[in-house]
Computed example of a mutant assay.
Amino acid sequence: MESIRSPEVYTMKGGDGPHSYAKNSTLQRHVIEVAKEAMKETIAEKLDVGAFNSSKTIKIADLGCSVGPNTFEAVETIIEAVRSKYGSQGLSSQIPQFQVFFNDHVSNDFNLLFTTLPRDKQYYAAGVPGSFYERLFPEASLHVVHSSSSLHWLSRVPEEVTNKNSPAWNKGRIHYANSGDEVIRAYKAQGERDMEKFLQLRAQEVVNGGLMLLNSTFNPNGTHPSQCVSHLFVDLIGSSLMELARKGRISEEKVDSFNLPIYLMTPQEMEAAVERNGCFSIERIETLASRPRGNGGNESLDHQMAAHIRAGMEDTITQHFGEDIIDELLDLYRKNIREIFIPFLAKSDGAKGESLLVVLKRKY
């Protein structure tokens, strides 16, 4: 019998302090804002109101919601679009109620999420703790599923990359972008397994005719991972850790045993996963311009990205290396952003720094 392994838990930094995700998630917010009009258009064109006639409540799930405020904006966009769809078909008097399920890992700061819910919200809110690589909802219970800036997180680090006896041992690196082909293949295989599981589970939970709006960072077709802007963003964390190892602040063995469970699929890989699953049709797939940008130009981009890393990965990093290195690590990271990332960003083409919006419809 195959053993069941719980997904590894990587949560954003809770609370509302200066280093929290709530205060440092403008990059993810920009992705949602850029996708807003496309989401509205797709719901207007593809949502089959007739399929929901028997439902007095439209149920929406945001998977990987974190703590807000981004999730609230995404949910309000969806509800506004659904209301408009009913209105455009002369059904304004028949608009159902809305229930929204906010999902993230059990260690997510749901207290902050619920204390900051919009006071004028037009939906009933509920929290659903758990990994989206596990079953979360009853059969055929969801009408719209949304996920943004979440699906690049894998359920686990590929086992091979931390095994010294494996050809995929990822020595000296924490990610696959600039590693050998064996490491890349190990991450790709894990990514495909996880997406297969994700689609299989959602196929059970989404009603026939229901929509999934998936917005994620991606690796462009035909582009080596080392040439992808978003990969460099992550890879520079590893470079900064190795600098600390050379300084004797941490051991190189510690770096060797630390890998991030992040994989960016290509559009072709996503299309192939949907085709293998067979339960969804692709209604829309397009790239959206969401390149990293500083609040005040490139001069502030290094600080913004370091804050982003701290909010998203501080707990993961400090659990492995200890808390006393985080400030020094982020200083090195900012330096690497200025010296390596910003010049790379300036000469890269736009397609290498965008997000991918995929809209799937549950087949009847």
Results as ranks from 00 to 15, higher is better:
191 G>V: 05
157 V>G: 06
164 K>T: 10
184 I>F: 09
173 R>E: 13
163 N>D: 09
160 E>K: 08
171 K>E: 15
159 E>I: 11
207 V>A: 02
169 W>C: 10
206 V>C: 00
204 Q>C: 13
173 R>P: 04
199 L>N: 03
158 P>V: 07
168 A>K: 01
177 A>C: 14
166 S>P: 07
180 G>Y: 11
198 F>L: 12
202 R>M: 00
177 A>E: 05
213 L>S: 00
180 G>M: 06
176 Y>C: 02
170 N>I: 00
180 G>L: 06
198 F>C: 07
174 I>F: 10
199 L>H: 03
181 D>L: 15
213 L>M: 07
205 E>S: 04
180 G>S: 12
168 A>T: 07
186 A>Q: 03
194 D>T: 00
203 A>L: 05
180 G>R: 08
175 H>K: 07
194 D>M: 08
177 A>L: 10
201 L>T: 08
175 H>Y: 15
212 M>A: 02
163 N>M: 02
158 P>A: 13
189 A>D: 11
199 L>F: 08
204 Q>W: 09
185 R>F: 09
159 E>V: 12
195 M>P: 09
182 E>T: 05
175 H>D: 10
175 H>N: 09
196 E>T: 14
185 R>E: 15
166 S>K: 03
173 R>H: 15
181 D>Q: 15
211 L>Q: 01
164 K>F: 06
212 M>C: 02
187 Y>N: 04
188 K>Q: 14
184 I>K: 11
159 E>L: 13
206 V>A: 01
210 G>V: 03
193 R>I: 12
208 N>L: 08
173 R>G: 08
203 A>I: 04
167 P>N: 02
175 H>A: 11
205 E>C: 05
192 E>V: 15
169 W>N: 08
176 Y>M: 04
198 F>R: 01
195 M>A: 12
208 N>F: 07
213 L>I: 10
199 L>M: 07
168 A>V: 08
211 L>H: 01
200 Q>R: 14
165 N>A: 14
200 Q>S: 15
190 Q>H: 03
201 L>W: 02
191 G>P: 05
189 A>S: 13
211 L>S: 00
197 K>D: 06
178 N>P: 02
163 N>Y: 01
198 F>G: 04
199 L>C: 07
187 Y>F: 09
175 H>S: 12
165 N>E: 15
169 W>I: 06
160 E>A: 09
213 L>P: 05
213 L>D: 02
211 L>M: 00
188 K>Y: 09
170 N>E: 12
160 E>F: 00
188 K>I: 10
169 W>Q: 07
159 E>P: 09
191 G>S: 05
182 E>A: 12
202 R>K: 01
183 V>I: 09
175 H>M: 13
177 A>K: 05
199 L>Q: 01
178 N>Y: 15
173 R>D: 10
184 I>C: 06
168 A>Y: 02
172 G>S: 13
173 R>M: 14
192 E>G: 13
